[in-house]
């Protein structure tokens, strides 16, 4: 099922929390929804899940629109809200049963479905405990289990890994990836590694506006611009190497690292790579390259570039 968001705007008083955002998500895609805190991620998700009405614009889920067919959409969406609110005084099993009934599952199929969720989310040992007694990681799993109980076609997860330890984060990400292969998933986060690790596409929003949309690798490339190399060249006089490097056609500028001798930072010209040129130069002069590292811009840099201005 596809989700298409068109010109979505949500106003809180004088402030536009979401400002004219449009994007689409296709089946099988895991969309990373990135943005600094307060960028409008949660608001957008609340609108898609039919919790709130938008001020302007529309959202279509498959053939349904949020204004007219909220009930049909709610049946098809599994939602894990921010902070993962749960009824703490209910036992896990009872809670899952409650959600299953609310989502209109046939009574005969409920016990089996719960069993499957308990297995999938690794809740077997905790299933009879009250939710309030569980640790944060297990609560997160209960949150995921309740979102998945009715086998929704769409999964919307608002910061699913905040507050988890590294092992739990990896587990939850794997779970999301496993589930996401046949569903439409939107996942909000402000962690870059999360997008790189799980998402097939990323959207970055800042101050309510969409600032980037594409595969994580494409976004990275866009921000990358020209090539930057860190090179250590030995067996030569640094000044001599410096001068000759600068004469290469593909090299825009060369910096000497003041902390390490014979270490150069080479910025390339436009899209041409200067790796070969540097190598040939060294061969001609009998210098030895002991290190050559291409400097990659991470998603973090992409994010900062796009959201700080």
């Amino acid at each position: 099922m596809n989700i298409s968001v068109e010109n979505l705007t949500k106003t809180y008083g004088p402030q536009n929390a979401v400002d004219d955002i449009s994007f689409t998500v296709n089946t099988g895609e895991i969309l990373g929804f990135l943005g600094p805190n307060g960028a409008g991620k949660t608001t957008t998700m609340k609108i898609i899940t039919c919790y709130m009405a938008p001020s302007q614009g529309s959202v279509r889920v498959g053939d349904y629109s949020i204004g007219e067919h909220a009930d049909e959409i709610k049946k098809r969406i599994g939602y894990l809200p921010e902070h993962n609110p749960l009824y703490k005084d209910m036992p896990v099993i009872e809670y899952l049963e409650f959600v299953a009934k609310l989502q209109g599952l046939a009574k005969s199929g409920i016990p089996q479905r719960i069993k499957k969720m308990v297995q999938l989310c690794g809740l077997d040992l905790e299933k009879h405990k009250k939710i309030g007694e569980l640790s944060k990681g297990y609560r997160q799993r209960v949150g995921l289990a309740q979102a998945l109980i009715h086998d929704p076609e769409i999964l919307i997860l608002d910061e699913p890994t905040t507050g988890l330890d590294p092992n739990q984060i990896v587990e939850i990400r794997n779970l999301i990836k496993e589930i996401g292969s046949e569903k439409t998933v939107i996942l909000s986060t402000h962690l870059m590694q999360e997008v790189e690790a799980t998402c097939s596409r990323a959207i970055i929003i800042s101050k309510g506006k969409l600032v980037a949309d594409g595969a994580p690798s494409t976004l990275q490339k866009q921000a990358q611009g020209s090539e930057v190399l860190k090179v250590t060249i030995e067996d030569g006089v640094p000044e001599d190497i410096y001068n000759k490097l600068q004469q290469l056609a593909t090299v825009k500028s060369v910096d000497l690292d003041p902390k390490r001798s014979n270490h150069f930072i080479i910025a390339g010209n436009s899209e041409l790579s200067s790796k070969r040129g540097v190598f040939q130069l060294c061969v001609q002069n009998n210098w030895v390259i002991t290190e050559m590292i291409p400097v990659e811009k991470s998603m973090e840099d992409v994010f900062r570039n796009l959201t700080l201005n």
Partner: peptide, 14 residues
């Protein structure tokens, strides 16, 4: 207060 209202109202209930 706890935000469970959001969880409840995004299920198939009015």
């Amino acid at each position: 207060n706890t935000g469970t209202i959001e969880l409840l109202l995004t299920k198939d209930v009015s």
